[in-house]
C-alpha cells in the first residue's frame, strides 16, 4: 500500500507561551495527504490555517510561535526531530509554500530572477546559466510573456497577478513533492484568480505533486480539491471528500459555510461570515467550541467537547470521513 506524503499527528501550536495570554492556535490536529492529492483546508479567518501550514515547514518559530507537540512526518521522516540543516534541505525543495500576499512575499530590493534562481542554486548544484534558464522556463510556463526581460524586473514593477506567478514559479522551481498554497488567490481579482487556479490545476495534472490548498472560499475549494478539511478555532471539525462535504455536509458549521457560499456565489469575495462572532482563542468556551453559534446546540455541547469521529463511510481510496459533533457521536 502507498504511504501518505505527509502525516500530521496531534499537532498543537501555541503563541506567547510564557504569558497568561498564551493561545493554542492549533489544537491536536491530525491529517494525512496522499500522493497526487489536493487537500483543501477551509475555515474562517483566525481559525489556524496559516499556522498549520507554517508548522508543516517548521517555520512557526519565525512567527514567534511554537509547536508544543505533535509530529510532522514527511515521506516517513518526522521533520520536527530532524536537525535544522536537514529541514532546510527539504524547504523549497521537497516542500514549498505560496503565501497569500504576493507583493509582501517578494523581496522588494532583489530582482525577480535572483529570487527564483536562488532557490534553484540552493538545492541543486547547477551553473548560474542553467539555473537562469530554468527560471526563465518556469516563468514562461507560469504564463509570463517576455520572461527573459521580466527576470530583471523588481517586484514593484510587476502587476499583482504577475507577482503571484513569480511566487508560484519560485515554489515550483525544485519540483517539490508537496506544495502548500496558503490562500494563493485571495489578494487577486477574479479573472487573474481563475488563470492562476488554472495554472495550478495544470501543474497538478502531472500527478507527481501533492497539494495542501488553504482557503476560506468554499467555491475555490470545490473547484480545486479532492478532499476538504474544515477548521474551526484550531480544530478540525469535519473532513471528507469534496463531493461528500458539498452534498452531505454533516457538521452544522460546515452546513452554515456552504449555505453562505451559495448565497454569495461570487468567487473571490471575502468569506461572508457565519452568524455569530469568530471565537477568541484566549477565551474559548467549554465543550464544543462552536456551540455558541450552533443552531442545534444541546446541553452536552456546552459541557464536553466532542471527539473527531469517523462517520463510518470510508470512501474508495480508503480515507475516512470524520466529524466532530455530538449529533453524530454516541455519548
Amino acid at each position: 500500500m502507498r504511504m501518505p506524503v505527509l502525516q500530521v499527528k496531534e499537532l498543537t501550536a501555541i503563541f506567547d507561551s510564557n504569558t497568561p495570554e498564551a493561545v493554542k492556535a492549533v489544537d491536536r490536529v491530525s491529517f494525512s495527504i496522499w500522493p497526487g492529492e489536493v487537500v483543501g483546508l477551509v475555515g474562517e479567518s483566525g481559525s489556524g490555517k496559516t499556522v498549520t501550514a507554517l508548522s508543516i515547514l517548521n517555520l512557526l518559530s519565525h512567527k514567534k510561535g511554537k509547536i508544543e507537540r505533535g509530529e510532522i512526518i514527511y515521506k516517513g521522516v518526522d521533520i520536527l526531530s530532524l536537525p535544522e540543516k536537514k529541514v532546510r534541505e527539504l524547504r523549497g525543495n521537497e516542500m514549498a509554500i505560496i503565501f497569500q500576499e504576493p507583493l509582501t512575499s517578494l523581496n522588494p530590493v532583489l530582482n525577480v530572477g535572483r529570487q527564483i534562481t536562488e532557490v534553484i542554486s540552493t538545492h541543486s548544484r547547477i551553473s548560474r546559466r542553467e539555473s537562469w534558464e530554468k527560471a526563465v522556463g518556469l516563468l514562461r510556463r507560469a504564463g509570463i510573456s517576455d520572461a527573459e526581460k521580466r527576470m530583471k524586473a523588481y517586484p514593484h514593477q510587476l502587476s499583482g497577478g504577475m507577482r503571484q506567478r513569480v511566487v508560484i514559479s519560485m515554489a515550483l522551481a525544485c519540483s517539490p513533492g508537496l506544495l502548500i498554497a496558503d490562500e494563493p488567490t485571495t489578494a487577486l481579482d477574479v479573472t487573474i484568480q481563475a488563470q492562476i487556479l488554472d495554472y495550478l490545476r495544470k501543474v497538478m495534472e502531472k500527478g507527481r505533486m501533492s497539494m495542501l490548498f488553504v482557503s476560506h472560499d468554499l467555491g475555490v475549494i470545490g473547484e480545486m480539491c479532492d478532499r476538504v478539511m474544515v477548521m474551526y478555532a484550531g480544530r478540525i471539525l469535519e473532513t471528507g471528500t469534496t463531493m461528500e462535504i458539498f452534498k452531505t455536509p454533516l457538521h452544522p458549521y460546515t452546513r452554515a459555510l456552504i449555505e453562505v457560499s451559495k448565497n454569495i456565489s461570487v468567487p473571490g469575495k471575502k468569506l461572508p461570515v457565519v452568524t455569530g462572532s469568530v471565537p477568541d482563542l484566549s477565551n474559548l468556551p467549554m465543550g464544543c467550541k462552536f456551540h455558541p453559534r450552533c443552531p442545534q446546540v444541546r446541553k452536552v455541547c456546552r459541557e464536553a467537547e466532542p471527539p473527531l469521529k469517523s462517520t463510518g463511510s470510508t470512501n474508495l481510496k480508503g480515507r475516512v470521513c470524520q466529524v466532530r459533533c455530538w449529533n453524530y457521536t454516541k455519548i
Binding site: 532546510r88 524547504r91 523549497g92 512575499s105 519560485m170
Partner: peptide, 9 residues
C-alpha cells in the same frame, strides 16, 4: 518576504 526566504530553504 523573509519568511519566504526561509521557506526557500
Amino acid at each position: 518576504y523573509i519568511l519566504t526566504a526561509r521557506a526557500k530553504g
